[in-house]
Design a protein around this nucleic acid. Structure first.
Length: 308
DNA sequence: CATGCCCCCTGCACGC
DNA sequence: TGCGTGCAGGGGGCAT
């Protein structure tokens, strides 16, 4: 699920129940996700107040009163869900319970439909009453505790590129980073050391909107003198607008629900290439056909007719 | 230092 | 119905 717009959507969902509140109780249900949970994870969180909940690239960053920051990455399938301190009301135990459509049976017993307790890896009970559950079937996500003073030099952050929605993303910047490189444009934009927060979907969408082929050499963003080309000038606002539209739409929901309150993002309905392999190009009067190729081990979808 | 490939893990859609 | 295959929003680590 999560590229920058999804992570930002999650951040906005969590902020009202995390920022300014204290971890009253923390439950850690397994030793590791992608990496082991930090040493004494529960102890280092319980009692701490979150003074700020921010985002850098695809990371959520909770600043703690202890001087540490809790860094959370959602990987491919990580999700947070919030229950506001009240247990969901379940119907009576008995015959009618088994047939209640709000409930399902699983190896974990009868549980609310849509819940997935097998992959609830951490639970935060906040002082405001919210119960925040981190669920991640694939466990590509992770959490780290880092001293706030070391955040910028930490290996996770020190080589991150610019925020695509910040002032640092300019045509000049792209040109200077792309100049002389032989990488293709798609892989270049996916590289978190260049632009931090873009992922497969939004790179494909931005390239289609800007009419640029993902196969083109990224060096096309700079001219012979290293100055930005028209392509670079065009690409920057396109990247921004795709991300901004996606955030405004609550991100994209690909499989089940995604936002912290369980509601759906709906930007996926505005994908112009992603998930449209084999379909006619969505560009007015193009008439091309959207195809899928593999670049850097990841799928790229694009229209070879209107993306040059 | 840069690039390419494999891998982590689970679930789901698809074809037979 | 059941099974095998391929694919999925990310990115670390290793060989070259």
């Amino acid at each position: 699920m999560p590229e920058l717009p999804e992570v930002e959507t999650v951040r906005r969902g969590l902020e009202p129940v995390m920022a300014g509140f204290r971890f009253v109780r923390v439950t850690q249900n397994r030793p590791d996700l992608r990496f082991p949970f930090p040493e004494r994870f529960v102890e280092r969180l319980e009692g701490q107040t979150i003074t700020h909940l921010g985002r850098r690239a695809k990371y959520l960053i909770a600043r703690l009163s202890s001087g540490e920051v809790l860094v959370m990455h959602l990987g491919m399938s990580g999700r947070f869900s919030i229950v506001n301190g009240v247990r969901p009301v379940l119907p009576q135990v008995g015959k009618q319970r088994a047939s209640d459509p709000r409930l399902v049976r699983s190896e974990h017993g009868v549980r609310p439909a849509g819940s997935d307790p097998a992959h609830d890896h951490a639970v935060f009970h906040m002082s405001g009453g919210a119960v925040i559950t981190y669920n991640d079937p694939r466990r590509f996500g992770y959490m780290q505790l880092i001293a706030e003073t070391e955040l910028e030099v930490h290996p996770l952050f020190k080589s991150l590129g610019v925020e695509p929605l910040g002032n640092a993303l300019t045509a000049d910047y792209l040109a200077s980073r792309a100049n002389g490189k032989t990488t293709d444009l798609k892989t270049f934009l996916m590289d978190q050391r260049i632009v931090a927060g873009l992922g497969n979907i939004y790179v494909c969408e931005a390239l289609h909107r800007s009419g640029l082929s993902p196969c083109r050499a990224c060096a096309c963003l700079a001219d012979r003198k290293g100055a930005p080309t028209k392509r670079a000038e065009n690409l920057v606002p396109t990247i921004r607008s795709v991300l901004e539209e996606a955030i405004a739409a609550g991100g994209s929901t690909l499989r089940d629900y995604k936002q912290t309150d369980g509601s759906l993002g709906y930007f996926q309905h505005r994908f112009r290439v992603y998930g449209r392999e084999g379909e006619p190009c969505t560009r007015e009067n193009c008439g091309g056909k959207i195809k899928r190729i593999v670049q850097g081990g990841r799928s790229t979808v694009y229209c070879a007719k209107c993306q040059k």
